[in-house]
Amino acid sequence: MENWQQIGAMSKPLMTKVRAIRGATTADANTIESMREAVAELLTEIETRNQLDYEEIISVIFTVTSDLDATFPAAIARENPQWENVPLLDLQQMQVRGSLEKCIRVLIYFNTDKPQAEIYHPYLRKARNLRPDWNLTHMIMGNK
Rank of each mutant, 00 (worst) to 15 (best):
132 P>D: 13
53 D>I: 14
143 N>D: 15
38 A>R: 09
21 I>V: 13
133 D>T: 05
143 N>L: 14
32 I>S: 07
66 S>K: 14
60 V>D: 01
13 P>R: 08
56 E>V: 07
1 M>S: 15
94 M>S: 13
92 Q>E: 09
133 D>A: 12
27 A>H: 04
8 G>K: 02
65 T>Q: 04
127 A>C: 01
115 P>N: 13
105 R>H: 04
117 A>V: 13
52 L>D: 01
144 K>I: 10
92 Q>L: 08
110 F>S: 08
82 Q>T: 12
122 P>M: 02
28 D>V: 09
104 I>F: 00
115 P>T: 14
117 A>P: 02
124 L>N: 05
75 A>M: 09
61 I>A: 10
24 A>L: 02
131 R>P: 03
109 Y>W: 14
48 T>N: 11
24 A>F: 06
53 D>G: 03
50 N>Y: 07
89 L>Q: 08
135 N>G: 15
15 M>Y: 08
123 Y>G: 02
129 N>C: 13
100 L>P: 08
94 M>Q: 12
46 I>F: 12
70 A>V: 01
111 N>E: 13
13 P>C: 06
71 T>E: 06
26 T>Y: 03
74 A>H: 05
20 A>K: 07
69 D>H: 14
99 S>P: 02
96 V>Y: 05
144 K>C: 04
91 L>W: 03
118 E>H: 14
31 T>K: 08
60 V>R: 03
8 G>C: 03
122 P>K: 00
127 A>Y: 05
54 Y>R: 10
51 Q>C: 11
64 V>K: 15
84 E>L: 07
9 A>V: 05
84 E>T: 00
137 T>N: 08
6 Q>A: 14
128 R>C: 12
18 V>G: 01
127 A>P: 00
95 Q>H: 15
73 P>M: 07
31 T>A: 10
133 D>G: 08
9 A>P: 00
6 Q>T: 11
49 R>H: 00
56 E>P: 00
134 W>I: 15
52 L>H: 00
54 Y>M: 13
79 E>Y: 04
52 L>I: 04
65 T>W: 02
83 W>F: 15
10 M>E: 12
114 K>M: 13
